[in-house]
Amino acid sequence: MKKLLIAVSLLTITSASLFAQKAMTRTGKITFDATTPTSPEKISGIDKQVACAMDAKTGHIQFQSQIKDFKFEKALMEDHFNENYMESKNFPKASFDGNITNIADVNLSKDGTYTATATGKLDIHGTTNPVTTTGTIKVSGGKITVIAKFSVKLADYKIVIPTVVADKIAKEATISLDAELIQK
């Protein structure tokens, strides 16, 4: 019985070590901003419940956001964001699935700041487009902070802006990502 228990725990530990190089979080932040100089108010929302996972060995990196988790200063803007633009009922998630192409340059076991390039598929509003962006990976005491900023053309994701408000909403939205991953 004892031997069996040891065997089971050993197996569990070894299987755990199989994914030990993964780092993840469920409290990453994504800020979206579509303000233009002619906007009457700030058009910006933040999701603080972004899931992010990274495989330190292969450089595989994934993000996922639930659209309804985006919070806005103005409730009506949040309504319009969900109902009219993102159609969160039909397209509840936005995600990124890609690879850090220069993962070899990033030493996750050593504290420091590294520049990383990620390339992959960005899925927003049910539409997937290939994207490549450069971000920063900060390693500090076992914590990995991923920071990236890039812009997306709303038209590329079939997000339609009605002509009435065409000059009040940016045609390209800025997406900022800030996630602190914990190694498992």
């Binding site: 089971v8 299987s15 993964k22 993840m24 996972a53 595989h60 994934q62």
Partner: peptide, 24 residues
Amino acid sequence: TAILVALCFTGGISFAQDDMFADL
């Protein structure tokens, strides 16, 4: 015992899948 061992392995395998958000 065999089932237990198998379970431990499948536990590992499910993590090794491509989608890292399967549980979420």
